[in-house]
């Protein structure tokens, strides 16, 4: 494969242990150029380790990582990569402008500073000292350091983890402009809605493995099951065979049907004359997601 056709990110059966803990367990994934990908998983799922491996910060115990068909460290040296680690990376006693100018100067063809300041919405902060910013401001500056070199691949590790709702929205406003420029973007998050709204593709990671990989609609269909509840009497086993139903849970005289297609489930219940005290509850995304990544979820395999 010629290197200019090679994918932006390639991990093949990459494993990494920390002492007795297997943080990343034979992860294989390919990210073509231009895709915006969310790496979704709860804390401790192996997201940061995966990112460390693909950036060349960590060496894999086995398997191989490549960016644009070359060694990750080499790709970073060539200025193809801009990254925002989960923590740290801001240093004291310099202004925002001084910091960004320095980072820009290490890349072969950086973006104009004014444009980066606008992109990250930090134009007003340019002469402020980096060590005197609020959490949200600091995060936007860290984001700016990841993109100022105009890299082809931008990797953001939990970019919004420490931010409140407003700061998160402001952060993503800047990201939208970037995705429009054909960059490959990989970000990790433990917010399902972020993965859903901000990416072309979601890779769900749990306990160091890829659990699911698909478009956000596909992932949502798996992860975000709507609960349809009805009052039932007598035989209930047939309910689990209704269209869309993935889980059946009987509590007293109530049947709780977790459905991937609630419309079809309700229609089928109506045709069977079983609509009694019908209740439809939209998925609690976080709960469903935690369930998916903490149990051996057979439903996940359907998307693999």
């Amino acid at each position: 494969m010629r290197s200019d056709e090679s994918p932006a990110v390639l991990l093949s059966s990459v494993t990494r242990n920390f002492g007795p803990v297997r943080a990343v367990d034979r992860i294989t994934l390919t990210i073509p150029r231009g895709q915006t990908v969310a790496l979704l998983g709860p804390n401790g799922a192996g997201k940061s380790t995966t990112i460390g491996l693909l950036l060349g910060l960590l060496a894999p115990d086995s398997g191989r990582a490549a960016l644009f068909g070359r060694d990750p460290v080499q790709a970073v040296r060539q200025g193809l990569v801009g990254a925002m680690p989960q923590e740290g990376g801001l240093i004291g006693r310099v202004t925002v402008r001084e910091l960004l100018s320095f980072v820009a100067g290490t890349y072969p063809a950086p973006l104009p500073l004014d444009r980066v300041l606008r992109l990250a919405q930090i134009t007003q902060l340019r002469d402020r000292r980096v060590d005197r910013l609020s959490g949200g401001q600091a995060q936007r500056v860290r984001f700016a350091t990841a993109v100022v070199g105009d890299p082809d691949l931008v990797v953001l590790d939990e970019p919004t983890a420490a931010l409140d709702v407003t700061a998160r929205r402001e952060f993503w406003d800047g990201m939208r402009d970037l995705a429009g420029q054909g960059k490959t973007i990989l970000f990790s998050t433990h917010y399902l809605d972020e993965a859903d709204e901000r990416s072309d593709r979601v890779i769900v990671v749990g306990r160091g493995r890829v659990i699911a990989d698909g478009t956000s609609d596909e992932i949502k269909r798996v992860v975000a099951l709507t609960t349809v509840s009805v009052t039932v009497t007598g035989e209930t086993a047939w309910l689990s065979a209704l269209p869309g139903v993935r889980h059946l849970d009987i509590r007293g005289d109530r049947a709780h049907l977790r459905s991937a297609d609630p419309d079809a489930t309700v229609m089928a219940l109506a045709q069977a004359g079983a609509v009694r005290n019908l209740e439809v509850t939209p998925a609690d995304l976080e709960d469903a997601f935690v369930a998916l990544t903490t149990e051996d979820a057979p439903i996940a395999e359907e998307t693999m």
Binding site: L57, V76, G79, A83, P85, G88, G89, L90, T106, G149
Partner: peptide, 10 residues
């Protein structure tokens, strides 16, 4: 985390 950050520049 600055030394680590520098490793992610060219």
């Amino acid at each position: 985390g600055w030394l680590r950050r520098l490793r992610l520049t060219p």
